[in-house]
């Protein structure tokens, strides 16, 4: 039981460097060992099937298309030049228009989602506690259902002989030969319907944290409701607002199914352009270049998103 001091120092020196981790003493090197067999398979998987292919796309975007659609590995920036309007005969607006149109559609969708999402976010935040979960679930259910089905649901609703189109025609809001689908209105409606949950969830998280006392104070000081909303409420919910806009803008500008089914041939967005190049046109390098641009847009948005939501808990997906 007794031990000379020298003996005890020996014991101390023999002890390997380790730290207790969640109740378990681990040598300092063991972290890496544990991490490698727990995370290793998934990390390898994601590198092989996600990062690798994406890098391959980037590489491909600098290659050339052969005469028969085969890939010629010769470095060129021609694909990007073409996307930004440099055609064989000087400036060609068709391709840059696709890019601009995609960004515009994304932006417009984000704004429309914001307008539709704000009342819902406030409405859910005002519900009694036990109803909030149910209401949020109701918001996310459509998101997890099949996009194709929802899209062709809109086809049915907005069909030229459907109730809505006929109603609008009788009210003279739509020309007699005018159509909701295929065309812009249908694409926008479906996009808003599709990405609304992405707007409502982050908005709700912000609205939920709002301090109602501030707003009352503003009213006390004589601010009109609109002014109180603009100068008191809006700055407080800005993080959720920006997060929501980014989350809507990113996927909306890269959508492929909705413009394909509802937009008709003339309303090609980035996604359709990519599909076109990989499908019918068989110009993989050019398709890759478009995909890379879509990736860059996403990266910029993501960067903005992390800047805004830094320090807060991530806006959880449904």
């Amino acid at each position: 039981m007794t031990s000379a001091p020298t003996e005890s120092t020996k014991v101390k020196n023999r002890r390997p460097r380790q730290a207790v981790h969640f109740g378990e003493p681990l040598p300092l090197g063991a972290h890496l060992c544990r991490a490698s067999w727990l995370c290793g398979p998934s990390v390898t998987w994601m590198m092989l099937f996600l990062v690798g292919p994406l890098l391959f796309v980037v590489a491909m975007s600098f290659a050339q298309r052969g005469d028969d659609g085969e890939i010629v590995w010769r470095f060129t920036t021609e694909n990007y030049a073409r996307l930004f309007g440099q055609g064989a005969l000087g400036f060609d607006p068709v391709q840059p228009l696709i890019l601009a149109r995609s960004l515009g559609v994304g932006l417009l969708t984000a704004i429309l989602c914001l307008l539709a999402g704000l009342p819902v976010a406030f409405f859910i935040a005002g519900l009694p506690h036990r109803w909030k979960g149910a209401a949020l679930t109701l918001v996310v259910i459509p998101f997890w259902t099949n996009l194709l089905v929802r899209t062709y649901g809109w086809q049915l609703i907005l069909a030229p002989d459907g109730w809505i189109a006929r109603g609008l025609r009788t009210a003279n809001w739509l020309a007699a030969d005018g159509e909701l689908y295929p065309g812009w209105p249908a694409v926008l409606i479906a996009l808003v319907c599709d990405y609304l949950p992405f707007m409502i969830l982050p908005l709700y998280t912000s609205v939920e944290k709002l301090d109602p006392a501030l707003e009352e104070a503003a009213a006390d000081l004589g601010a009109s409701p609109l002014r109180a909303f603009w100068s008191v409420v809006l700055p407080q919910i800005r993080p959720g607002l920006i997060a929501g806009c980014v989350l809507v803008f990113l996927p909306a500008s890269g959508q492929f199914v909705i413009p394909d089914l509802l937009g008709g041939a003339k309303l090609a967005l980035l996604g359709n352009a990519v599909q076109q190049q990989f499908g019918a046109s068989r110009d993989w390098p050019y398709g890759s270049a478009i995909a890379v641009v879509a990736l860059l847009v996403m990266g910029a948005g993501l960067w903005l998103h992390t800047r805004v939501t830094r320090g807060r808990r991530e806006v959880a997906l449904p």
Partner: peptide, 11 residues
Amino acid sequence: GGLPALHLPAW
């Protein structure tokens, strides 16, 4: 209890 304990894990 009179015995060195540092080498023992919590459990």
